[in-house]
Write a protein that binds this DNA or RNA. Structure first.
Lengths: 208, 208
DNA sequence: ACCTGAACACCGTTCAAGT
DNA sequence: ACCTGAACACCGTTCAAGT
């Protein structure tokens, strides 16, 4: 199996596939060369070095995070839909999220979403610094949630923690609370509830 | 300079100091051995290998995150104080936070705080599954915020993003909003505002 | 029980030499 | 313009040999 000639695009595709399948640690220059059927050093001609190869993958991911189309009849509902879309998009690229996070580019990735949020907060009647703060609060909330959630999913057993919590709750004499804390988190519902609560808190009339 | 004999404690202290000063990447077995004035292989006898050395450091950090003492006159105020304490504690150990996060132990680290939150939510009148959900919402919010915040601080210049946002806001004909979004985030205030908004949203009477 | 140096199998990267 | 293999300076880890 011969190749016409190696291209930068081929390198990026193979590297992206490797990362998506096995994570960034599996992306060694030697493994990538083997996958491409070339000498290790050829890769350097096309992408410089490993660091800038990863940069290029991250850049591509940021671009792929397409336009956001808010849906719903109220600003609060549309903010929810933006938040849900973001979360869904992020969850399909776990390794690449982590890489974007490591590189400190989370914010840039969220730019389209931020613009949608600006629009919705304005529609909800928020103005000036207060609207800006609300946009940022939702942004931090969603990004943070996805980071924590991913952390949870990778986490090893955390039984002792859950057990102890259970006891703390039992001490409050609230068996329903204790039971709820002993149950695994329903992450979809917790996400919805949290964002809804935050948005409700943000949209409260400050003169009320 | 001779030593009586190398101890596990010495190894952990030197390793912790290295990580605190220069991050986990700087913790190579050879560098650590040089710091300790021993052969590289001696370290293996005391801590097994690099992975379990890092595990031990993380474990120690989790333990150091001491008891939480909620302050304030209302449940909402005490939840805020728990959130602020957590954030402060986490911010003084940036590299170690990242390591705890990588290992998926964030939740275990938050156990004492969770117990305090259970108490406060109960005091605020929340019961059963709803109280559990509120505890978790605050936990996710605080952890997520600190992760995002740390990401922001490590981030390179993100000027293009800020500029574009500024324009999006200008399109809404709200110069004050545009100005606010062009200004760097006041992270202390955003944290307070976000947690306050979330707690307000969570404590709203559902029958209202 | 504790420490050692040599050796192994991996890395990313450079570079002179090829076509 | 593009590709190559050899070589370099790093890794973490194993192990037989010392005391």
């Amino acid at each position: 199996m011969t190749r016409a000639s190696l291209t930068r695009e081929e390198v990026l595709l193979a590297a992206g596939s490797l990362v998506r399948r096995h994570g960034p640690a599996a992306l060694t220059m030697r493994a990538l060369a083997a996958e491409l059927g070339t000498a290790v050093t050829s890769i350097y001609w096309h992408v410089g070095n490993r660091e800038s190869l990863l940069d290029a993958l991250v850049e591509r991911t940021v671009e792929e995070l397409g336009e956001i189309e808010p849906r719903g009849h109220t600003p609060a509902a549309r903010v929810m839909s933006v938040a849900r879309t973001l979360r869904r998009e992020l969850r399909t690229r776990p390794h690449l999220i982590a890489m974007v996070h490591e590189r400190g580019l989370t914010e840039r990735m969220f730019l389209p979403a931020q613009q949608a949020l600006v629009h919705e907060m304005h529609a909800a009647g928020l103005r000036g610094a207060r609207a800006a703060q609300a946009v940022r609060a939702v942004q931090f909330q969603v990004v943070g949630y996805v980071l924590v959630e991913r952390n949870r999913e990778r986490a090893p057993l955390q039984r002792p923690a859950e057990e102890e919590l259970w006891h703390a709750a039992a001490a409050e004499q609230d068996p329903a609370l204790a039971r709820a804390l002993g149950t695994p988190v329903d992450q979809d519902r917790l996400f919805d509830d949290s964002v809804k609560a935050l948005v409700a808190g943000l949209l409260v009339d400050p003169r009320a």
